[in-house]
Write a protein that binds this DNA or RNA. Structure first.
Length: 1205
RNA sequence: GCCGGGGUGGCGGAAUGGUAUACGCGCGCGACUCAAAAUCGCGUCUCGCAAGGGAUGAGGGUUCGAGUCCCUCCCCCGGCACCA
């Protein structure tokens, strides 16, 4: 075989043969035979491409090659493999392409698909084309529509006209996921908010499950993290703050005790409200003539009259609320209405009269009429809109219309029935009546307005010193009448809404905002009145659109507070205590005493210190650990510690120095020293200013050292009250426990006594044993958590506990919010699946009956978007006009279409059963193939995957699929950049066409090159010059195939390499480490070229290993070896673990950590033999004689290591 | 800012805590050739004549032994980003 490898001819030959023989057709090996011979299955899937007009560049096939290799590998391992391909052909890009090139999108898509398929064909993929699908095929989108209908039936698809993102360039609404920040991801146009009727899918219902199930998926961490980010779950609490509406309130009753009681109750809720009674104001009746002219009155400008009680209802300055459900309506006196007898008139007629009366007053008195006059009325504002009167006390009236009283006058009794819990009725017996809690008074709608906030830190509630509302918060217009600086506020709001979020961010996060003057909120925890602001750093779309601001414990709030000079109140003490038992580290042993002398600089070395101590011992007894030692005993002790204590000694010095270093890094940490104070190390550290203890804990069994401790405290600057004795007297234990009950305490000790003591009073996890623990606990802990201070009865609690307790205390509830928003599912474009809904004037939105699916996308001549927010389909009257499935009456079709992501959210299911007419996937087939075992792709990490997971979980819930997750394993594909390191694009002219590469270098070479470029998930620049390497590799294989095979027994070495290769290639393919698999095959080839001879079995094994990577050349060589077609159906080579090593092992020999030589070890060598060989090894012996050998280490198969001194 | 992943020759990159730089590209030298291409062989981190020494972003720690584990800092890539 001396001819050159003719890749063109050979590739063509086998590509044809594969197609004809259909060997890659996926076959369900259904366990129908039940003989138990069911093959394992593997479903390998690429993210199906959108067939763009640009065609494929070399980056696209990278993933396809990987799945192709994987699929071929699995097939050779005896799996039944599904490896399909299809087209994601709906969507904006296809439509925009069509508009630009003046081709119908359907035509363009067909053309592009043909082009793609042609390009793919040259690379030699094993796709099962019999299962090809495309999302634009009615037989496919019938089921996309079907899924939509199921969602609709379960209430998960609903209509909404909330403002959505509108791209003025693409002329369609977009989902949040379709944006980059605030610009359309397709055209970089800044999106606008537009109110359009939209279909929305309730993806948020699945947020928790999608989050939770991520943990079980074999996906790259960064993709899981992106999903978690996007779902953005945060746990916290919803808490209501109330904003009082009035400074003064008028009670309907003139009962003085009631008045005092009301005032007291308001006060208890933090409301500073003056309560009046008609009597206290000296008001009796309204005085106005029929023209609306009010009589002069120093305080009241009018009075009114009601069926039961005469009372004034016109405000003096600040407005009033009226209590009492028996109060109908504040009415003018009969003479003010022209002396009519109301009873002779109908209610409407009375209304007419009163309307005129009110209008008269409004006209005469500057048009200002205060609320209670008009609680029963609605206001027509200058712009024509109607507003509820009760919210508009200072609105200028141009007109007043009569309204339904009950609807507009929400009076609540301050008394409720004990049994029903409802406001009392007149006939309710006294003993049945229960007064509402103070808070309920305060929360009465007449008295206050609530603002709900979401916070993750309810534990900081006592530190909330102001509130901030998002500019779009509805509270602001609702309270317009009470806002003193309305002009300023409305100016800020309109400015903020004109700014895009990008602008907001660009402005360097400089905080802006405006106070809502005239309003105060009540902090529910401490009843303090706090100001309200509107500021754009609070987002309308997240949480409740309002926050409580805790500047002391939130960065953003802090920045804002600083700018607006707002109080910062610290309520979390982040100080942590570290209890440290120094005596435990440097205990009272001889060794430590000696070391202390050295460290203190009194002695040169240990020996020196000992001599000094010995001199001392000869004069006076030496005390060590409460023992008195004679000089002889001292000598004994010294010898003993010299022998056994060296290691310990070294360690202790390290420990102590290390500890001091670490502890000095700690901030917000108070250090309690456990010490009798005699320890020289501690003293030296304190004296050198390295350590500043704040507390001293004395673990002594009596107070005998009290005096000494106090002296030391003085030296150290520790207050005596911060000394705690730990003795067995109850009082002391109590005191210590008191100190230790602060949960920010950690103990650290290496001494037996100290450690035991600490463990007896601290939870085990708070007793630390080494520096890294200390560091972890003190630096990496959430710095925001801590112990509560200045928080009333909650002082001393830790953040975690306080969260629940404070939330409960203020009547809030624990809540969870998500960043994920419901999926805006309508597109005002032509090229998408029609939404199968019919709008009937009588029955509203009606689902198209399932037997009428698919709703075909009509043929049109003009498919350009209208730009008005109407779909182009709206103009096709013959399509739009239909009949209602419910009543048969005339109705209109929904004209919006689905987004591009619809089809791709379930297509992987269709591949399992692509031609099924009765179901989107047959149950048996689904059970056989699901889930996708390996899913390969890049990009789309968030959107496509989140949408598909959502739909899949829904399909699971309605019993269509049997797995909770669609993609068991995901492999992320790194992109290929152009040779210039930039993204490949037609515009930059740096696109490399795979068809050309294949033509020049061959498909197998191309495939191997793409796999060999680097780790699969890496983004690497294309380098045409480097393909030469893989081309050479293929050609060398070809050439070696021309050599005669050997009849000789295989050499151990070559056999070993082959088994290693079989092992590594298989493992690497499984792990998607194709680059190292290729490297191993190259190594193997190098070895085979150098070998004396290759046996037939070895060569055949190699060809099979190569087959998934280079299917054409492998197939050709396989045939030439006389083996039956096809190599891709041959069995994957097994390896023999015992043959992986070649009998002798080369082992390195280290001396003091440096490699000095290496030896050959035979399989059966014992440790002794190995060490003996190593000692005699060239280059090693010389290093061993130079020093005293103290340690010899043998790690079998790895290394021999000597330590010498 | 937060989260995730990284930082190793001229380049892409290899390395269960065990001889760093496998494999490939590029480059240099040589063989074959009239010559070129192709192919084959040898060499290719760095300082040093050598013995040896030094290098995996910087610094420190643990270990007989660290690219790999721990800590601090710097830089790059990706995601999120005023998310309460």
């Amino acid at each position: 075989m001396s001819e050159r490898y003719d890749h063109k001819a050979i590739e063509k030959k086998w590509q044809q043969r594969w197609q004809e023989s259909q060997i890659f057709r996926a076959q369900e090996d259904l366990p129908a035979g039940k003989a138990g011979a069911s093959k394992p299955k593997t479903y390998v899937l690429d993210m199906f491409p959108y067939p763009s007009g640009e065609g494929l560049h070399v980056g696209h096939p990278k993933g396809y090659i990987a799945t192709d290799i994987y699929a071929r590998f699995k097939r050779m391992q005896g799996h039944s493999v599904l490896h399909p391909m299809g087209w994601d052909a709906f969507g904006l890009p296809a439509e925009n392409y069509a508009i630009k090139n003046k081709i119908h999108p359907a035509v363009a898509v067909e053309k592009n698909i043909a082009n793609f398929k042609d390009q793919l064909a040259h690379i030699g993929f094993d796709y099962d084309w019999s299962r090809e699908i495309k999302t634009t095929d009615p037989a496919f989108y019938k089921w996309t529509q079907w899924i939509f209908l199921q969602l609709y039936k379960k209430g998960l698809a609903f209509q909404s006209d909330e403002p959505i993102n509108w791209c003025p360039s693409c002329k369609t609404g977009l989902a949040n996921e379709d944006l980059n920040g605030n610009v359309c991801e397709r055209c970089d146009t800044v999106v606008e908010k537009k109110r359009l009727p939209q279909w929305v899918l309730k993806i948020t219902d699945y947020a928790d499950r999608m989050l939770h199930d991520l943990d079980h998926l074999q996906w790259p961490e960064h993709i899981k993290e992106a999903q978690r980010n996007w779902i953005g779950r945060s746990e916290g609490a919803e808490i209501e703050f109330i904003v009082p509406r009035f400074k003064e309130i008028l009670l309907a009753s003139s009962n003085e005790s009631k008045r005092a009681r009301a005032e007291k109750l308001f006060k208890a809720s933090g409301l500073d409200i003056k309560v009046h009674t008609p009597k206290s104001l000296g008001l009796t009746e309204i005085e106005a003539d029929e023209n609306g002219t009010l009589a002069e009155n120093a305080e009241a400008k009018a009075r009114a009259y009601s069926g039961k009680t005469s009372l004034p209802v016109l405000a003096i300055d600040t407005g009033f609320a009226i209590e009492g459900e028996d109060l109908d309506l504040a009415r003018p006196k009969r003479n003010a209405l022209g002396g009519i007898d109301e009873n002779s008139l109908s209610q409407d007629e009375v209304g007419e009269k009163m309307l005129k009366f009110y209008q008269g007053i409004a006209k005469k008195h500057g048009g200002r009429v205060l609320a209670h006059w008009i609680d029963a009325l609605a206001l027509v504002l200058p712009d024509g809109s109607v507003e509820r009167a009760e919210d508009s006390r200072e609105v200028i009236l141009t007109d007043i219309v009569h309204g339904e009283f009950d609807k507009f006058f929400p009076v609540r009794s301050l008394y409720i029935s004990k049994t029903t819990g409802k406001p009392v009725k007149e006939e309710t017996p006294e003993e049945e009546i229960k007064e509402l809690e103070p808070m309920a008074w305060a929360q009465n709608e007449l008295v206050s307005r609530p603002i709900k906030v979401f916070t993750t830190r309810p534990d900081t509630l006592f530190g909330a010193s102001y509130m901030v509302l998002a500019p779009e918060h509805p509270f602001i217009p609702a309270m317009k009448a009470s806002i003193e600086n309305w002009d300023e506020v409305i100016a800020y709001i309109s400015e903020a809404s004109a700014k895009t979020e990008i602008d907001r961010t660009k402005e360097g996060k400089e905080k802006t905002g405006v106070e809502l003057r005239g309003l105060k909120a009540i902090n529910p925890a401490n009843k303090e009145q706090i100001p309200l602001y509107v500021a754009d750093y609070v987002l309308g779309g997240y949480g409740t659109g309002a926050i409580m601001a805790v500047p002391a414990h939130d960065e953003r709030d802090f920045a804002f507070a600083k700018k607006f000079n707002l109080p910062v109140k610290k309520v979390i003490d982040q100080t942590k205590y570290l209890i440290f038992d120094f005596d435990g580290v440097i205990g009272d042993t001889l060794e430590n005493a000696l070391l202390a002398k050295v460290r203190m600089g009194f002695c040169r070395d240990r020996e020196d210190a000992y001599q000094e101590m010995l001199t001392y011992a000869n004069k006076k007894p030496v005390h060590i650990r409460n023992h008195t030692l004679s000089p002889e005993e001292l000598q004994k002790e010294y010898d003993w510690t010299s022998r056994f204590g060296e290691e310990m000694r070294k360690q202790k010095i390290k420990l102590f120095d290390g500890f001091i270093t670490e502890i000095r890094k700690l901030r917000n940490t108070k250090i309690a020293v456990v010490s009798s104070g005699s320890n020289l190390y501690v003293r030296s550290a304190v004296e050198q200013g390295k350590l500043s203890p704040t507390h001293v804990l004395c673990f002594e069994d009596n107070h005998s050292k009290e005096e000494k401790i106090e002296r030391i405290c003085k030296d150290w600057g520790v207050s005596v009250k911060d000394v705690y004795y730990f003795t067995d007297t109850k009082a002391d234990v109590f005191e210590l426990e008191n100190f230790l009950s602060k949960e920010r305490i950690f103990g650290c000790s290496w001494g037996f006594l100290g450690k035991e003591a600490l463990e007896s009073v601290l939870p085990k996890e708070q007793v630390l044993e080494n520096f890294s623990d200390i560091h972890r606990v003190f630096e990496n802990l959430h710095t925001d958590a801590g112990m509560l201070v200045e928080s009333g009865s909650f002082d001393g609690l830790n953040s975690e506990d306080a969260k629940k307790k404070i939330t409960e205390f203020v009547g809030g509830k624990m809540a969870t919010t998500y960043k994920l928003k419901d999926w805006v599912f309508s597109r005002q474009r032509y090229w998408g699946e029609p939404i199968p809904i019919i709008h009937c004037p009588a029955h509203g939105a009606v689902a198209v009956p399932e037997d009428q699916l698919p709703v075909l996308l009509p043929e049109v001549e003009f498919y350009e978007p209208s730009g008005t927010g109407e779909s182009p389909l709206a103009n096709i009257t013959e399509w739009v006009n239909t009949t209602c499935p419910t009543c048969g009456g005339p109705a209109k079709r929904e004209t919006n279409t689905m987004p591009q992501w619809a089809g791709s959210s379930w297509y992987y299911l269709r591949f399992m059963d692509p031609r099924n007419d009765a179901a989107l996937v047959g149950k048996d087939k689904e059970k056989y193939w699901a889930p996708v075992d390996v899913y390969v792709g890049g990009d789309h990490a968030v959107r496509h995957l989140i949408y598909a997971r959502f739909w899949h979980k829904f399909l699971y819930d309605i019993g269509v699929v049997s797995t909770v997750e669609p993609f068991a394993r995901l492999e992320f594909l790194g992109f290929i950049l152009a040779e210039d390191g930039k993204k490949m694009s037609k515009r930059l002219g740096n696109v490399i066409n795979p068809t050309e590469v294949v033509a020049n270098y061959g498909a197998d070479s191309f495939r191997i090159y793409e796999m060999f470029m680097g780790p699969f998930e890496n983004t690497v620049a294309w380098n045409t010059a480097s393909i030469a390497g893989t081309t050479r590799f293929i050609e060398r294989v070809w050439r070696l195939a021309g050599e005669p095979l050997s009849e000789q027994p295989a050499t151990v070495e070559l056999e070993a390499i082959l088994h290693q290769t079989a092992k590594k290639v298989g493992e690497d393919i499984e792990a998607f480490k194709f680059n190292t698999a290729v490297a191993q095959m190259m190594t193997c080839l190098n070895a085979m070229e150098k070998a004396e001879g290759i046996r037939a079995g070895q060569w055949k094994a190699f060809i099979r290993l190569l087959a998934p990577f280079a299917p054409h050349v492998a197939e050709e060589l396989w045939e030439r070896l006389g083996e039956p077609y096809s190599v891709h159906q041959a069995a994957w080579p097994q390896f023999d673990e015992s043959k992986i090593s070649s009998g002798t092992i080369k082992v390195a020999v280290q001396v003091n950590g440096k490699v000095r030589g290496s030896i050959e070890l035979a399989q059966g060598d014992t440790e002794g033999e190995a060490l003996a060989k190593a000692r005699g090894a060239p280059g090693v012996a010389k290093w061993l004689v130079e020093g005293r050998e103290v340690k010899a280490l043998y790690v079998p198969g790895k290394i021999i290591s000597f330590v010498v001194q």
